[in-house]
Amino acid sequence: MNYDHTLTVIRDHLAEAQHSLGEMPAGVPASEIFTRVRKRRRRHAIAAVAAACAAIGLAIAVALPSGTQPRPVHVHLAAWSVDTNPDGTVTFKLRNTSHPARLERVLAEAGVPAMVRSGEICLGQGRHVLLPTQGIVSYLNGRPTGMGSYFAVGGGSNWHGDLLLKWSWTITPSKIPSNAHFVISSIPGNHVPANRIQAVWEFVPKSAHVKCAASVKL
C-alpha cells in the first residue's frame, strides 16, 4: 500500500472514530465563556496593578533612606567619602560636590540630612537662621573647632582647575535635631573671583528658605 493510500485509510478510520464517539456533551453556554474571560481579565488587571505597586514600593524603598533609622555606610568617591564609625559618628570628607544627588542620599542613609548642590551657591535666608552645631559637628579638617554654623571659602587664584576642597567633618547623627539639615554647595572650576563664594556649608532648619545663585558675595 502506498503512502497516499495509507493516508486515506488513516483519515477514514479517524473520521469513523470521531463519529463513533456518539453524542457529545454540549459546551457551556457562551455567556459562561464571556464571564470567565471577564473574570480572568479582572484578575490579571488586579495582579498587574499589584505587581506595579510592589515594584514602585520596592523602588521607593531602595531609593529613599529607610525612615529615621540610619545605617552604616562606607562610600568612597574621588569627590567625597562618607564613613560610619564604630561609635556611630560619621566621617564626611568633601573635595567637591560632584554627584550631589547621590551624596544627599548617602548622607541621609548615614543619618545626616543634607541638601547638596553643585554649580551654584545656596544659603538659608533670614536673620538667626543658623543653628548651633556644638556636639554635632566636632571636627573640621581633623582639628577640634569651635564650630560655627556657617563655613565658606572664596574663589581666587588659589584654586587650580576644578574646585578641590579638603573639608573633613565628624558628625554625630543622633544629635542632629529632626528639623535641621546641612546645606552644602560649591561651584567647580577656577573662575570664581576672590570676593565671591566658591563653596559653603551651613546648618539650618529644614523649614528655612534656601536661595541658590550662580554667584554670591563672600
Partner: peptide, 19 residues
C-alpha cells in the same frame, strides 16, 4: 459573532480533541 462560531464549531472541535 463568537457565539455563532462557538455553536457551529464546538462539536467538531470536541470530537477531534477527544480523539
Amino acid at each position: 459573532e463568537f457565539s455563532e462560531f462557538y455553536a457551529a464549531a464546538w462539536d467538531d472541535c470536541l470530537r477531534i480533541v477527544t480523539v
